[in-house]
Design a protein around this nucleic acid. Structure first.
Lengths: 349, 349
DNA sequence: ATGAAAGCGCTAACAA
DNA sequence: TTGTTAGCGCTTTCAT
């Protein structure tokens, strides 16, 4: 194991001062060419790399971005991370991942752990439990300490931070329209509980479209899945809820699911119940991911462009971090990433 | 925005020395109760938190683990990260993610960026391109600099590092056995190119089992997918290869796919060709993930227990980091995580 | 052209 | 019981 090279070590070996070495490596014109050459050669030989921690302490910036998401085993979040990582890396930042597992407490702990100098700013999507508690003091405190936050997808209002979202309402209207255009007359929705604001918004879009089209709207068409405090058998519960929903509503001929999992699970249940897809009942999902693409039949879906969302979030955050250092404080902005319907088999006429 | 509290700031305000504050906050018995109380109250009021960067510089440890994986939009890696994150967090470590995108160069850059003080050790799975180049100097240099590495899944030999793998050969034998037990007589395999060692090993297991059972073995039963340098339309190419494979081998009645994606794609192609699954042809995959579970029909698969692999990798790494600080250098060990077949519909008789 | 010194925030050995 | 000092690795201002 080689001893780690440091400025000090090089300085001692070469019998010059630390500052000379530092300047030489930076090609300062204060240093003579001969010294520079000597120093550089030695540094190369010993594979000198400046110590990031020391740089961070000195410069008061870590070049790390903290990303806190509810879950990592989830295609959408994963694409967002890919987007963040891409932009961040291109701009000299590393990405530190924290998982809240949808828990309020873990979210607070993660924020706390990383806020004390480890990162320069956060990108996060709020945990379901936090949304249901409505307790956002940890975000406020973090921002108050001068650590900027950018929220994406599951965002909240009244916090001084940038947001990256999709226009859920319009996207949902389009989703329902897609079903209607394909011939559906009784369209149901499988969504989350109301406190998950994206679920709420998608429900609103669904309702608005039906309203505008003067189509049949009934409460029984709406299924709200309760999985925020779910334990082991989330998926079984999900299947059971959907089973009951279909049994109670045999007249439905179109389903709008607010995420992939609800979508493919509903398709499975429908198949088990003897429906032919898309002949008897059509489906559209939200969030394009592997599940939709490889489902059978393949699931038409609203693409959220997770990677774009991630890139944009990283861009907004880094802009804010840099601005802050120059004493600027931008107004918060909400960036809306456009959505697109990816037409596949479940909405064929 | 509140000014950030520091020991110095507290010391000045309270008119004591920095070390008094430091000791008081640590409940040192050297400090009088009255001073302690005063200091603590003040610290609390100003929400003092020690600066991690300063601690790192002082202690020469960052409590960060660098995880470098080929891809994040991939269920298996994602479960491994979840496992790493779980163990790491419980032991006071953060997880920093680096993505190689299967590229040798990006892998080197990531290693380099993080090695200079940002992290205490690495957990990684080798990029396909690196495997194909066979150039492992970056790993050796990192380890030589005293930064331990733990490799998982796609590991390489001849490097002084711990490894976490599954027994690919045995697992593959079992996978083929599962097909044979279900009645298959002509079993094909869809695998990677040979330099991806897990693909190679799984192929070996396949061959060994057929050998032992005295079953028909033909070269045409083996399909090796070339996707290491793939560009945009990987999935189309994959489908095309499989299409040709099935067309050339209409007699196959069982397929062992070395990963989920190959598995579900093959099922799609088979369906398009008019096969009924599992009646005409049966399938088994490798790596249990969302795709297999939600495929139609659901895909029987070899579960790799990604989360367990992650936890184990984190455990080995942290053990090595700590040992190193005590001057110990453990022998490298290879930990084999057991696999399990999850029986689903594609292997029903 | 080179070096000394201060400081980023913290710890800890040592001094008072 | 409290304070002084040195040092972690580096940058930078200000001597020399």
């Amino acid at each position: 194991m080689k001893p780690k090279a440091s400025l000090k070590m090089i300085a001692t070996e070469l019998d010059v001062s630390v500052s000379t070495v530092s300047k030489a490596l930076k090609d300062s014109k204060e240093i003579s060419d001969s010294t520079k050459k000597k120093v550089k050669a030695f540094a190369k030989l010993y594979n000198y790399k400046p110590n990031n921690i020391a740089l961070s302490l000195k410069s008061q910036q870590t070049n790390n971005i903290g990303v806190i998401i509810p879950e990592i085993v989830h295609h959408f979040f994963t694409t967002v991370i890919a987007g963040i990582e891409k932009f961040a890396n291109e701009h000299g930042y590393n990405v530190i991942i924290g998982l809240s597992n949808e828990s309020f407490k873990k979210e607070v702990i993660n924020l706390d752990m990383l806020a004390n100098g480890t990162i320069d700013g956060f990108i996060l999507s709020v945990a379901k439990q936090t949304l249901s508690y409505g307790d956002y003091h940890h975000f406020e405190e973090t921002i108050d300490q001068g650590i900027p936050i950018v929220m994406f997808d599951r965002v909240i209002d009244g916090i001084h931070c940038d947001r990256v979202v999709v226009d859920d309402i319009t996207a949902s209207k389009n989703a329902v329209k897609c079903l209607v255009d394909a011939g559906c007359e009784k369209v149901g929705i499988i969504t989350t509980e109301d406190f998950v604001n994206v679920g709420k918004k998608r429900l609103t879009g669904y309702q608005q479209y039906l309203e505008e089209m003067d189509m049949e709207q009934e409460d029984r068409f709406i299924l709200k899945i309760n999985d925020s405090e779910a334990g082991q058998n989330v998926e079984q519960k999900l299947e059971a809820s959907i089973y009951k929903y279909f049994s109670d509503n045999p007249d439905l001929d179109g389903i709008f699911a607010v995420n992939e999992l609800y979508g493919v699970t509903a398709m499975k249940v429908a198949r088990d119940l003897g429906y032919a897809i898309p002949r008897d009942i059509k489906f559209i999902g939200f969030t394009d991911g592997v599940l939709s693409k490889h489902a059978y039949p393949s699931l038409t879906t609203v693409s959220q462009h997770g990677e774009k969302m991630g890139e944009k979030a990283a861009e907004l955050l880094i802009r804010r971090i840099k601005g802050q250092r120059e004493g600027k404080d931008f107004d918060t902005q909400e960036h809306v990433v456009d959505t697109k319907i990816i037409h596949r088999e479940t909405t064929k006429e």
